[in-house]
Amino acid sequence: MWSEITKKLQETVQNIMPQVEAVIGWERGFNEIRIKPVVIKKEGDISKLVWNPFCVQNLSGYLVKSPAVIPREGRRVAICVKGCDSRSVTALIQEGFLKRDQIFIIGIPCSGTVDWRKVMKRLERSSVIHRAEIKDGRLMVEHAEGVEEIPLREILLRRCLRCVYPNPTVSDVVIGETVSPHIEKEDLYKDVEAFERKSLDERRKFWAETLSRCIRCYACRNACPLCICQDWCIAERRDPKWVTQKPTLKDILLFHGIHALHLAGRCTECGECERVCPMEIPVMFIKEKLNETTLRLFSYEAGIDSNLVPPLLTFNPHETGI
C-alpha cells in the first residue's frame, strides 16, 4: 500500500516538475525506519521520493526558515504535506510568510507516523535494522538479533495518537484515500484537563523534573515551522536579557515559557518540537494548554482557514470572551 502511494507521488511529481522550481519531500535515510527530508530539483532524483509512516518530518519549515527553498518570481515550490503539516502551511499563509500562489501543495492523508525511539526501545540492545515492513497494522522488523513484530498503534508518535486533522486542510492535489482521525475532537484536550486536575505541587514537581532534563539545544525551536525569529531568537540574545546562559531551571522554564507564548494562538500542534527533543520532554504539552485556552476564548484553531485572522494578531475593542 505504501509503495503504491509512493509510486503515485513520484508520478505526480513527474507531471508537475516542469512547473515548479523544486519539490520538498521525504527520502530513505540510513535505514528503513529513518527517513530524511529531500529537495528534488531535477527529474533524475524523483525516484528518491518515498511515502510511508516513517515520514515524520513536517517539511513546511523549509519554505520559510533559512536555508529556505524560495521560488523565483512567478515560479512555485512543491511541498509534500500530511494533515498536520498542511495546517502549518495555512498558518504561514495567514501570517503573510507565504503566498498561496507560490506553492504547490501535495497533500497526503496520514493514518499516523512512527516514533522510531519507541521501536528501538522494543528492540532493546539490538540497533542494526536490516529490513522493516508495515503490513495489516503491524510493523515487522528484521534486525541483527532476530525478527520483531509490533502492533503499529503501540509505536505511533503521541501527536498522531491525538490527531484530529489527518487529512490535509489545504492542497493542490491529494494522493491516497481519506483517513479517519484517531480520536474525536471533543477529546483533544483530555490530557490537559486530566493534568490540570492534579494539585499545584504535583504539577510543579512534574515540570521541574521533566524540564530539568532540558539541555537547551533549541532543537524544539529549530524544528518549529512557526518559530520565525531564527538568528534573533531572544533565547540566544542577551539584550534584552530575558534568559541567561546558565543551566538553571529558571532559565529553562523561561525559555520554554517564551517558546510556548510566542506560539499562543498560532501553534498547529504538528508536534515537531516534541518529536525532535533528544531528552524526550513533552514540549508540545505546554502548547496544548495554550491551544485549549485559545479554543475556549476565541473558538479558534490555528491553520484551518487561511482567511481567518489569528485572534492575537489583531486589535479589536469589541472582543468578547476575555
Binding site: 525569529c229 531568537c233 531572544i234 534584552p240
Partner: peptide, 19 residues
C-alpha cells in the same frame, strides 16, 4: 508584547528595565 524577537521596545519601559 507581540514582537517575538523583542525588536520593538517601549522607551522608558524596556524589557531590560522591566526584567
Amino acid at each position: 508584547a507581540t514582537c517575538p524577537p523583542k525588536a520593538i521596545q517601549l522607551q522608558h519601559a524596556t524589557d531590560n528595565q522591566i526584567l
